Simulated scan of single mutants.
Amino acid sequence: MPGANERALEKAKTIPADALILDLEDAVAPDAKAAARERVCAAASSGDYGRREVTIRVNGIGTPWHDDDLRAAAAAGPAAVVVPKVNSVADVHALEAALEAGGAPDHTTIWAMLETPVAILRAHEICAASQRLSVLVMGTNDLAKELRAEHVPGRAPLLTALSTAVLAARYAGKEILDGVFNDVSDLEAFTVEAQQAKEFGFDGKTLIHPGQVEPCNTTFAPTPDEIALAQEVIAAFEAAQREGRGVVTVNGRMIENLHVEQAQRVLAVAEAIGALR
């Protein structure tokens, strides 16, 4: 959501998204950044956004606004600070130190955007650099530009980078969000790309228009059949434990702990998405 737009910040209170990124970077002109910073920090600390995680995207490392953005965000205490073009462990450590120096509460985490070739090559190091870093966000537009790759259906030029980033996130136990889809008028193509992201293992997708929220929620939400199967798996496993049985089957398939964990996640995702709709 553009941080300079008061109407957009107000509308964000009604959007059924899991998280909001109140933007001080690309969506704000240079001469409006100071005013946007004040407005966004007030919004982030207002408590007016319900269950939505409210995050602040600061301007990038090395820009004239970065340090002031971090200080203000630390004081506001949002759910997270989203940082563009995080390229190294040193970047993460500097961000962590700045947030701590600014008095950021423990709940304010770092969402690191991976937008360059070097960030992809160092993704596992970046992921593991700090406990405060909780989420990776793919910056697919900038990454495509840096790679000199074309935006094509199926995103073949980006698949290596996307899967590398998912591997890094899972290695370090972090969440990871896919990048944006640029054509806000083509919801059919958006849904195809969101499905691809889900299949790759992404935990969600970053969005640039409210119209993309519902198809994204629908894509990432478990289906009624998946929910029913998850409930059946958990019930069967719990019944087997009570009865002292070591072998559990559901619909002819052997059930192990890993299947129970997957089933529990299915139900948790369904509950989280349903609560925001």
Rank of each mutant, 00 (worst) to 15 (best):
F190Q: 04
K33V: 13
F200R: 10
S163T: 15
G252E: 08
Q241P: 08
N87Q: 14
R7T: 08
T108H: 08
G252F: 04
A17C: 13
T249F: 10
L159Q: 15
A230Y: 00
Q241G: 14
V135Q: 07
A27H: 05
A263S: 12
N87R: 14
V81H: 07
L229P: 04
P215D: 09
P30M: 03
A240C: 09
G50A: 09
P153H: 07
G274A: 13
A42F: 03
G102W: 07
F200Y: 10
L20F: 08
E193C: 02
E261F: 10
R52G: 13
R71M: 03
P153N: 09
A144H: 04
A104L: 06
R265Q: 15
E188F: 02
A270I: 04
A98G: 01
R39G: 08
D178H: 11
I126R: 05
A75R: 13
F220Y: 12
A97K: 10
T109L: 11
S163G: 09
A35I: 00
L158I: 01
R245T: 00
N257Q: 14
R52C: 15
A97L: 08
E115Y: 04
K198L: 15
L22S: 02
S185F: 12
T55Y: 01
G60H: 06
A194E: 02
H66R: 02
R57M: 06
F200E: 03
A189M: 10
E256D: 14
A12N: 05
L177D: 04
G139D: 09
V166K: 08
P210E: 09
R155S: 12
V58F: 01
T206L: 12
Q195V: 07
E232N: 05
V89I: 13
A4P: 00
V83Q: 04
E96S: 08
R242S: 15
A161M: 00
E188Q: 09
Q196W: 02
L70Y: 03
L121V: 02
F190L: 14
Q241N: 12
T164K: 09
G211A: 15
F202E: 07
L167C: 12
I120S: 02
P153K: 07
D91G: 01
S130P: 07
S134Q: 11
L121F: 08
A75T: 08
V247N: 11
K13I: 10
S185H: 14
V184K: 02
L9S: 02
L20A: 06
D31L: 05
D67L: 05
A197F: 00
R57P: 02
R51V: 06
A172D: 12
V269D: 03
V269T: 14
T249Q: 15
L143T: 09
A123D: 14
A172I: 06
E214I: 15
T219Q: 08
E214R: 15
P78S: 04
N217E: 03
A90I: 10
A98Y: 00
V269I: 14
M113Y: 00
S45Y: 03
M138D: 04
E10R: 08
A44L: 02
L9C: 03
A43H: 01
A8Q: 11
V233T: 08
A168S: 11
V247A: 14
D183H: 05
A129V: 06
A97M: 03
E271N: 13
A236T: 06
V250Y: 01
A235S: 11
C127K: 02
A123C: 13
